[in-house]
């Protein structure tokens, strides 16, 4: 299988701040790669470097077999980039925005392709509405429609579902899987754990460093965490649990507290010592991410 994205040592500095520090990332063709990490971790910067929107300060790599340093113009022709903030023209209608994108990309048989795209996204009846008047979910659909009009081979989506309702998110992900089935490679950044689980593979980035990469199962297993569930909601109890040396993360979940830590034996002994009602359970992705962030030398906690 060939790689749609293959970069090594990708680095970006703003002034003397290193925002992305020597990231190695490979995404196989036709795969959906979830890109996760806290705010300000360097996700957007990485995506922008991949599609030629930012100069690269270090590292090398290719997108679609094209050098990202020298052939950005060709990459732009074959990639679709959906920005985190809505960046189409709010004072133009849905139809006008798509027509503009189609013209710039030199799409053949433009009118028909725009129609087909409107149809596919369920935007046909909103064709003459100003983009600025659309609600969040519809804006997201329009933005997606605009960046797939030219049938890109690579789709870069920067937090496409932020602020969108569950129903719309579900539909959105069905489309993403549809694109992947057609052979499109997708790199999608998100904060939602359920979305991460819908990806073929995930990459987790914090403080500009790539901390882990693999399938969800691999990432969870690789972290070597054990988890437990404790009955109780008392804030005092939660504080006490958090202070246990064997506990890395403690999250109140309704009537129970979910705990995770690197050492299963120590965790069991500590909980038995507290005489609480507890049972073991599987660690989840969130446990892994919080643990990775805390364990990182730059992690402040």
């Amino acid at each position: 299988m060939t790689a749609a994205i293959a970069v090594t040592g990708l680095t970006k500095r703003f002034g003397n701040r290193t925002v992305v520090d020597a990231i190695d990332l490979t995404v196989a063709e036709g795969r959906i790669m979830g890109f996760l990490g806290p705010n300000g971790s360097g996700k957007t910067t990485t995506i922008r470097m991949l599609c030629g929107l930012l100069h690269i300060d270090g590292g090398t790599g290719e997108c679609l077999g094209l050098d990202i340093r020298t052939r950005a113009a060709e990459i732009k022709r074959q990639a679709g980039y959906m920005t985190q903030r809505f960046s189409l023209y709010e004072d133009m209608t849905v139809g006008e925005n798509l027509d503009f994108a189609a013209r710039v990309h030199g799409v053949k048989d433009r009118a028909r392709r725009v129609d087909a795209s409107l149809e596919r996204m369920g935007l046909t009846h909103r064709r003459d509405q100003l983009a600025g008047e659309l609600s969040g979910g519809w804006k997201q659909r329009l933005a997606l429609a605009a960046c797939i009009l030219h049938r890109p081979r690579l789709l870069l989506l920067d937090e496409p579902t932020a602020g969108v309702d569950p129903q719309a998110r579900r539909e959105f992900w069905e489309r993403i899987h549809g694109f992947a089935a057609e052979g499109m490679t997708v790199l999608v950044s998100t904060h939602y754990m359920d979305e991460a689980e819908r990806c073929h593979a995930i990459a987790y980035i914090a403080y500009g460093h790539l901390l882990t990469v693999g399938t969800v199962a691999e990432v969870v297993a690789g972290a070597g965490l054990s988890a437990a569930s404790v009955a109780g909601v008392d804030p005092e109890l939660v504080a006490k649990l958090k202070s246990l040396p064997s506990v890395a993360t403690a999250t109140a979940m309704g009537a129970r507290v979910h705990l995770a830590g690197p050492d299963a034996g120590a965790l069991g002994r500590d909980l038995d010592g507290l005489h609480v009602d507890w049972h073991a359970e599987d660690p989840n992705l969130e446990d892994v991410f919080i643990h990775l962030m805390a364990a990182h030398p730059e992690g402040g906690r």
Binding site: G52, A73, K76, S87, V104
Partner: peptide
Amino acid sequence: ERGTMESLLAMPLT
């Protein structure tokens, strides 16, 4: 100012 520059730059325009 409106952020549309980002989309514009990502398009194949010289």
